[in-house]
Design a binder for these strands. Structure first.
Lengths: 131, 131
DNA sequence: TTTCCTGCAAACTATTTGCAATCTA
DNA sequence: TAGATTGCAAATAGTTTGCAGGAAA
């Protein structure tokens, strides 16, 4: 898929994803984009998302048994997944270097990047469980 | 799902997953288990895997656009995902502590564990690209 | 105009579920 | 025997795709 033309559909999908704060899935994006381009189809949403991903403009997130989610921030960063509600929280924290120790332990691998997935509770769920 | 009885099916599924070296998906497990219990259905494989996961005997791995994979090792550990062939390699390396810095930066979160997902090339693909 | 893109609907893949029959404890 | 578990088949959910018409360059 080339997807080089800047159509209304494409503009709207990118816009919705970039403004979303919640790592949305295709169904949510579709619903939102229809407020801008009511005639858009779900197929076009999928095609556009795929194009944006392969261009490196957005990133994908996978969770077993759930729909694929999209992340407006294509720069590698860390996440916390809430064990209670499934929400994905971005973590902007600076962490110790992981590449050096991993490369030292596994010289037979080529390692390009490291992303950390934390498990725990988001602020809302933590509050709920505490009360 | 209770799944308290030790049936032939259940024994075979657990056995296959534990002996697998390759983080297999349900279809692969189904195919292997049929060599032991030919009459087993794919539905039973899914039900059994779900039970094993919720009992903490095995773990799940998700990749966008791919079938869910199962990991015989339920103890949190790190993975490298090969960018070329998609293979998932276990990394047994000891890494610097990630929980402390993350907790310090995000006191509003409860953080239970951290798993690292490395991206790069598995030994085989590295070799291929090099030649 | 030319080629890419879109909407629609059908097709697919992975996974789940209802139910009657069958086993385990 | 009682109740959990199975096989089967149908049902879902998410995603992809072929095609003819429509729109961007």
């Amino acid at each position: 898929m080339a997807m080089k033309r800047l159509t209304r559909q494409r503009k709207a999908v990118l816009d919705v994803v970039q403004k979303a704060r919640n790592h949305p899935d295709a169904a949510w994006i579709y619903q939102e984009v229809r407020k801008i381009v009511p005639s858009i189809s779900l197929g076009t949403v999928y095609r556009t998302l795929e194009a944006l991903v392969s261009e490196g403009q957005i990133a994908v997130l996978a969770r077993a048994g759930e729909a694929t989610r999209y992340d407006a921030n294509p720069v590698p960063h860390h996440h916390l997944i809430c064990e209670r509600c499934g929400e994905i929280v971005d973590l902007e924290v600076e962490l110790p270097d992981l590449l050096a120790p991993a490369r030292a332990a596994y010289p037979e691998l080529t390692i390009h990047e490291a992303k950390v997935e934390f498990r725990g509770l988001c602020p809302a769920c933590r509050q709920t469980l505490r009360s």
